[in-house]
């Protein structure tokens, strides 16, 4: 159920709230992070892993994960790749432009469940964006977890996002960060290969690990299977699914995956609920 219900705000569940673009950062040639702030009404602060519906006026509305929270003033960050008309409109929005926002929606990473465990964060490509708030929360509550490990896969060195943060995290003594790319020029000194290759080197006790995984679905499937093979309990492997979320409140059915509505039962699901569903061929 969205936090901005009819009773609390008098606003309908499909009615967006106005936010203004405060800043934009070009992450990659086709990917932008925008920081938005409420114009008047402020939505409930999201949990890491939740998503919001962003409306580009006159173009359309799409679900976008939250990639960061601002400084506590209700600001939100969304990292968006230009893949269609709406994302293109959002990616090209300028500072000062207004967009509509609904949410936050869905089930997040719920890191409380990982307390006392080693925490393994596995990101592929743009999947690092929804995992960034989880990483920031884990860092802010570092004492709650055992080992903290971040594994990142990207297409090539030029496709890595949040590079400054990755370098900063890599410099800390209480985190292990490994980055690999699918292809690289000879000058690249880092790892080359798919992110699943990093699993065997992750310095965690797999039997007492919670893993949070986000990336292309095929990548998540192989990562989850690889983690389960190594002894991570399937209920402790959490994946962020992506489907065609339209209403975001479980009414329209566009995002239905078997018995699950990705928008309200997810987008974060444990592997034991997703394993069979992810192998069902879509028509």
């Amino acid at each position: 159920m969205p936090a901005d219900s009819d009773e609390s705000t008098g606003r309908g569940p499909m009615t967006p709230v106005l936010y203004r673009v405060e800043a934009r950062h070009q992450e990659l040639a086709d990917t932008v992070t925008i920081r938005i702030a409420p114009v008047t009404e402020r939505l409930t602060d999201p949990e890491p892993g939740q998503f919001e519906m962003l409306l580009a006026f006159g173009v359309g509305e799409i679900p976008i994960s939250i990639s960061g929270l601002g400084d506590g003033g209700g600001e939100l960050e969304h990292t968006i790749r230009s893949v269609g008309a709406v994302t293109k409109a959002l990616c090209t929005s300028a500072v000062g432009d207004l967009i509509g926002v609904r949410g936050p929606y869905g089930v997040g990473w719920d890191l409380d469940r990982a307390t006392g465990h080693d925490l393994l964060i596995v990101a592929g490509g743009l999947g690092l964006a929804p995992l960034r708030p989880a990483m920031l929360e884990a860092l802010a509550n570092r004492h709650r977890f055992g080992r903290l490990v971040l594994l990142v896969g990207a297409r090539d060195p030029g496709s890595l996002m949040f590079v400054e943060e990755l370098e900063r995290w890599r410099g800390r003594f209480d985190i292990d960060v490994a980055v690999t790319v699918d292809a690289a020029p000879p000058s690249w000194r880092g790892d080359v290969g798919v992110v699943t290759k990093l699993l065997s080197r992750a310095p965690v006790n797999f039997g007492n690990t919670t893993a949070v995984v986000c990336g292309p679905e095929v990548m998540m499937r192989f990562v989850a299977a690889g983690l389960a093979d190594r002894g991570v309990p399937p209920g402790q492997i959490r994946l962020s699914m992506e489907r065609n979320m339209r209403c975001a409140i479980g009414h329209c059915g566009h995002c239905q995956l078997g018995p699950e509505f990705v928008c309200k039962d997810g987008p974060v699901f444990p592997w034991d609920r997703m394993e069979k569903l992810m192998l069902v061929r879509e028509r």
Partner: peptide, 16 residues
């Protein structure tokens, strides 16, 4: 072989 096949899929590319 599995890793190579995943690399061939170019999973992280923008396939819009």
């Amino acid at each position: 072989l599995q890793a190579t096949r995943l690399q061939l899929l170019d999973l992280y590319g923008n396939h819009a």
